[in-house]
Design a protein around this nucleic acid. Structure first.
Length: 484
RNA sequence: GGCGGCAUAGCCAAGUGGUAAGGCAACGGCCUGCAAAGCCGAUAUUCUCCGGUUCGAAUCCGGAUGCCGCCUCCA
C-alpha cells in the first residue's frame, strides 16, 4: 500500500514517494507570535500533527520543522502597544503556544526555529538572490523581481499578467513590478534591526521560511504544509526565492488545510469572532476538540459551533465508555503499539481499514468511521461475553486496534478512569453540587431501591438529572456521570 | 475582474464509475424494577436541478442555480 497525497502543486493526488526512501522531511508554517492561538491555528497544527504521527507509524523516519515568526509588523506594533520588547512579546506567546499545544496533545516537531535566530542564513539567501540577478536593492530594501522567475505562479495557478490586471494593491514606487515582494526590509528608528550588507533592517515575511526550512531540511525536501490562505502569496514566494537561489526543486509535496469557520462565518478581526484555543479548552475536553477537527477531511472547510463540539464530546464519551467496559473485563488495557511495526500483520481488519483510509490523503474522517465500527464490534463482543469467555483474545486485538487508531489521531491518551474523573470534576466546578452531596443522594437511592421503594429512588434520580447528573446502575454499583 | 472549491438523511460527514461508511438526534425492539449505558432494527430507491457519456454515475462531461474561499495581514 502506498500513501497518496493531494499536492497543491499538481492539483491532484499523487503517490507519496519521499526523495530519500524511508525518510521524510517536512516543514509546516507555524504562527506569528503576536497574539493567542485560535481554533484555526489548532486545525492546521493538529492536522499536520496527525500526518506526522501517521508517517512515523508507517515506518518513515521523519524530520519535522515548524517555525515561529517572531519579527514582523504585527509583532512590532503589538509590542509597542504593550510597551515591551518584541522579544518579550514573542516569548510570551511562544510559551502560550506550547501550553495550548501541550493541552491538545500535539507532538513537538524536531525543530521549532525562530526567524530572529536565523538572520545569517536569511542574509545568505538574499545575497545569493542579488548575485544571481533575482533581487535588487532600493534604499536599504531588497526586493525579489518576480518577472525574473519564469515559473512564478505555478503553485497558486496564477499568471503574472492576470494578477497585474486585477491588482488592487497600493503601488510601491520602489518596486519594479507591483508584485515584487520584499526580502529584506530597511528598519525605521526604534524597530528591531540587524546589520546587513544593505544596512540595518529585518527579514521580509517569506524569506525566513525559505532560509530555515533549507537550513534544517535541505535545499529540496518532501512536504511543506500550512493553511490554504498561505498558498498565495506566501508559499508562491517561498518557491520563487528558494528555487531562484538554489536552482533546484524546493518542495515535492505541498499540503494545505482548509479553514475553520465560526457559526458559519469566517473568523475575522472585523467580526471579532476569533475563538482562542485557551478559551475553548475551558469548556471542552481537548480530545473532543481534536476529534471535532479531524471529523472532516483536512482540505475541506469546517464549521465550529456549540452543537458540533458537543457532538464530538458525545462521540468521545462513547469511545471512553467502551474502554472503561474493556477495563472491567481485562486486567489491564492493551498497550498501543507505537513502534511503527504495528502496521504489519499484527493488526486486525479494523486497523488495516483505518490505514487504508489514512493512506488516501490522510482521510481521518473515514478513519474515524472505522474507529467507530471497531467500537461497536467490541461492545457487541462484550455484551455476549458472559456466554463466551473465550472471546478475550478478540477483545485484546480489537482494543489494541482502537488504541492504535487513537494514537494516530492523538486521542485516547487518558485512562478511562482519568477521563471520567476529569469530567465529573468539571461538572462539580461548574455546578452548585459537591461530590459528597451526590454520594449521599446516591446512597439514599440505593437504600430505597433495596427496600423496593422505587418511587423515592426515581425521585432522587430525577432530582440529580435536573442538575445534569446521570446515574447508571451497574452490576457492581451505581456510578454517576455528566448528562449531556 | 482573475483563480479555486463545495452542494449526500433532521444535523455533521465519508464515499471520484459497480449499486449510499460513521457520528449526533429521534423512533421500535432486547436488556433493566424503571432508567442509563450497550446491542439489534427500521430510517436517503437516492446524492441541488437539467442534459450527456456508459451495460452501469453521488462519482466522468456540459449547462443552470445556490453557497464559500483566495487574489490584502491571516492557519
Amino acid at each position: 500500500m502506498t500513501i497518496r497525497v493531494y499536492n497543491t502543486l499538481s492539483r491532484q493526488k499523487e503517490a507519496f514517494e519521499p526523495m530519500t526512501p524511508g525518510r521524510v522531511h517536512m516543514y509546516v508554517c507555524g504562527p506569528t507570535v503576536y497574539d493567542s492561538c485560535h481554533i484555526g491555528h489548532a486545525r492546521s497544527i493538529v492536522v499536520f500533527d496527525v500526518i506526522y504521527r501517521y508517517l512515523m507509524l508507517r515506518g518513515y523516519q521523519v524530520v519535522y520543522a515548524r517555525n515561529f515568526t517572531d519579527v514582523d509588523d504585527k509583532i512590532i506594533n503589538r509590542a509597542n502597544e504593550l510597551g515591551i520588547s518584541t522579544a518579550e512579546l514573542a516569548e510570551r506567546y511562544i510559551d502560550e503556544f506550547h501550553a495550548d499545544m501541550g493541552a491538545l496533545n500535539v507532538k513537538r516537531p524536531n525543530y521549532e526555529p525562530k526567524a530572529t535566530e536565523h538572520i545569517d542564513q536569511i542574509i545568505d539567501v538574499v545575497k545569493r538572490l542579488i548575485e544571481k540577478g533575482y533581487a535588487y536593492v532600493v534604499d536599504g530594501n531588497v526586493f525579489f523581481a518576480v518577472e525574473k522567475f519564469n515559473s512564478y505562479g505555478k503553485l497558486s495557478g496564477r499568471k503574472l499578467s492576470e494578477m497585474e490586471a486585477g491588482a488592487r494593491i497600493e503601488i510601491d514606487k520602489q518596486k519594479q513590478n507591483p508584485m515584487d515582494f520584499v526580502l529584506w526590509k530597511a528598519s525605521k528608528p526604534n524597530e528591531p534591526s540587524w546589520e546587513s550588507p544593505w544596512g540595518k533592517g529585518r527579514p521580509g515575511w517569506h524569506i525566513e521560511c525559505s532560509a530555515m526550512s533549507i537550513d534544517y531540511l535541505g535545499k529540496s525536501f518532501d512536504i511543506h504544509g500550512g493553511g490554504k490562505d498561505l498558498i498565495f502569496p506566501h508559499h508562491e514566494n517561498e518557491i520563487a526565492q528558494s528555487e531562484a537561489a538554489f536552482g533546484q526543486l524546493f518542495v515535492k509535496y505541498w499540503l494545505h488545510n482548509g479553514f475553520v469557520n465560526i457559526n458559519h462565518e469566517k473568523m475575522s478581526k472585523s467580526l471579532g469572532n476569533f475563538l482562542m484555543i485557551k478559551d475553548i479548552l475551558k469548556a471542552y475536553h481537548p480530545e473532543a476538540i481534536r476529534l471535532f477537527l479531524l471529523s472532516n477531511h483536512y482540505r475541506s472547510p469546517v464549521d465550529f459551533n456549540d452543537q458540533e463540539i458537543r457532538e464530538a464530546s458525545s462521540a468521545l464519551d462513547k469511545i471512553y465508555t467502551l474502554l472503561e467496559r474493556v477495563g472491567s473485563v481485562l486486567d489491564e488495557l492493551p498497550e498501543a503499539d507505537e513502534s511503527g511495526t504495528g502496521f504489519g500483520e499484527k493488526g486486525t481488519n479494523y486497523w488495516h481499514l483505518f490505514c487504508n483510509a489514512m493512506d488516501d490523503d490522510f482521510n481521518t474522517a473515514q478513519g474515524i468511521g472505522v474507529l467507530f465500527d471497531a467500537v461497536r464490534h467490541l461492545n457487541r463482543v462484550l455484551d455476549e461475553k458472559s456466554a463466551d469467555p473465550s472471546s478475550e483474545e478478540e477483545i485484546q486485538a480489537v482494543c489494541r486496534d482502537i488504541l492504535n487508531m487513537g494514537g494516530v489521531l492523538g486521542l485516547l491518551a487518558e485512562s478511562p478512569a482519568q477521563y471520567f474523573e476529569n469530567q465529573r470534576r468539571t461538572v462539580l466546578e461548574k455546578g452548585s453540587l459537591d461530590s459528597e452531596t451526590i454520594e449521599k443522594l446516591v446512597k439514599e437511592r440505593e437504600a430505597a431501591r433495596k427496600a423496593k421503594d422505587f418511587q423515592t429512588a426515581d425521585k432522587i434520580r430525577d432530582q440529580l438529572k435536573e442538575m445534569n447528573i446521570q446515574l447508571e446502575d451497574r452490576p457492581d454499583g451505581t456510578i454517576w456521570r455528566y448528562a449531556k
